[in-house]
Design a binder for these strands. Structure first.
Length: 417
RNA sequence: CGGAGCGUGGUGUAACGGCUAACAUUCCUGUUUUGGGAACAGGCGACUCCGGGUUCGAAUCCCGGCGCUCCGACCA
């Protein structure tokens, strides 16, 4: 894409009402636009980044044999009344609204109930199990206090996976698979080395759930990390009994602020029983389905990457998440030669299916460099009269800052990999 | 929901209760310039968040509302 076609502009300064680093950088670089506290719109660069994250998540979900759906955002109170979660005392994050005829509606903050209800049409027998179903969809939560930029929003994107099994054991095995897949996702988005599987509160049907916590001062949670960094426990559940059970000593634990980027739950029959999602087992006996739910927030993930991987010059996107792989910068000035050479290189990169943002604007070099640093694409190529003279291209790695001069074929081979 | 702070051109800031609300940046025109946010000249852009009050006079003081941020509580 040519940068001249991008309608967004970068800014030198962040709006004063944004304090969190993720929001400041994402706004300055033109990835998002703030509408309300906790409500952000995605601009072309932000949307592309989000789509990259989603694509990666989808590919991992497919490995689990999960299939994608898209459930409605508007919710029928009846099925939530059945599970007891329509009640404001039970769930205080509902956005509730009304039809013209005064009957109530809710905006989905999660989807256990509707999916469980929906599956009654499709799951009758043990032969219909197991099932893994997911969606990537906008959730609405009426948070009393939105905060930390995109971290805790009132409208946000969530990947929610639900699994349905004939037995608890089967569900537990699936849970372990999801756990590995999640770790793989965090590794791929560049957060692997600072994201820890963390024991957290379990709820009605299991002692623990697991959270994936990314270490960051911007996090809302505090976790205890064992000295060998092999075990982590959310401070909320780190009672003496729990620590003993996990074989941890209080004095060996180090507290860290962390961002909860994912959470996986065993639900047991918490939803299948009230919503009557039953199946007939091999003996013809009716049984409730065993369930699990597995959440991960693409928008929070995007914000977390912005927060923890950025530096003083701007965002730093890992390959695979970045909206484009390459930032091609033309320092043409009045030189038609440079203009043509950079245009030609742009076409060539596109032909080789390399995702490139081409800064074809008529702007001073310093501005282009500053923008490239701020936007944070992993690779930067400069074409100028200097590089034409040398017969090489200048190639810079955003993350390491390493600059090399490289010839075109070599570069394309490297980037096309 | 409790507490604190802040609302002034698109953005960041300034202005004693008193001139036509200033400066920088962005943006527009032109000249020049092109390897780290260039230079010069000219120009556009604000009912100072909203409503009320005090005052000869309010961006400024008072009251109410709304919004934003932060701390806390909350967070299936």
């Amino acid at each position: 894409m040519k940068q001249s076609q991008l309608f967004t502009k970068t800014r030198r300064e962040a709006p004063k009402d944004e304090v969190s680093k993720n929001a400041q950088l994402l706004i300055r670089a033109g990835f998002v636009h703030k509408e309300l506290a906790g409500v952000y719109s995605y601009l072309p660069l932000g949307l592309k980044t989000l789509e990259k994250i989603n694509r990666l998540i989808r590919s991992e979900m497919n490995k689990l044999g999960a299939v994608e759906v898209n459930l409605s955002a508007l919710q029928n109170p009846e099925i939530w009344q059945a599970s007891g979660r329509w009640n404001d005392q039970e769930v205080d994050v509902w956005f509730k609204t009304k039809l013209k005829n005064e009957s109530e509606l809710g905006l989905g903050f999660t989807h256990e109930e509707p999916l469980t209800n929906l599956l009654r049409d499709h799951i009758k027998s043990y032969r219909d199990l197991p099932r893994a179903i997911y969606q990537i969809q906008t959730k609405f939560r009426n948070e009393t206090r939105a905060k930390s930029g995109l971290m805790r929003g009132r409208e946000f994107l969530m990947k929610d996976l639900y699994s349905f099994h004939a037995t608890q054991t089967e569900q537990e095995e699936f849970y372990q698979q999801v756990l590995l897949v999640y770790q793989n996702i965090f590794k791929q988005v560049g957060l692997g080395d600072r994201t820890y599987l963390t024991f957290a509160s379990g709820g009605a049907f299991s002692k623990y759930s697991h959270e994936f916590q990314t270490l960051s001062e911007a996090g809302e949670d505090t976790i205890y990390l064992s000295a060998d960094e092999k075990l982590a426990v959310n401070i909320e559940v780190a009672t003496p009994e729990v620590l003993e059970e996990l074989g941890l000593k209080k004095e060996d634990l180090v507290p860290h602020k962390a961002i909860e980027v994912g959470n996986i739950f065993s639900l047991g029959t918490r939803f299948s029983e009230p919503l009557k999602l039953n199946f007939l087992d091999a003996e013809g006996k009716e049984q409730p389905v065993w369930m699990g739910s597995y959440g991960l927030g693409p928008s929070r993930l995007l914000a977390t990457i912005a927060e923890v991987l950025s530096d003083e010059n701007g965002l730093v996107w890992p390959e695979g998440v970045a909206p484009f792989s390459v930032h091609l910068i033309s320092l043409a000035g009045k030189s038609d030669e440079v203009k043509q050479a950079s245009e030609k290189l742009y076409q060539k990169l596109v032909q080789n299916k390399i995702e490139v943002l081409f800064d074809d604007r008529d702007a001073p070099a310093g501005e282009k460099f500053a923008d490239a640093d701020l936007i944070g694409l992993p690779n930067r190529i400069v074409v100028s009269s200097k590089t034409l003279e040398a017969g090489k291209l200048e190639f810079k790695n955003r993350q390491t800052g390493e600059v090399t001069n490289i010839d075109e074929t070599e570069l394309i081979r490297f980037l096309a990999k």
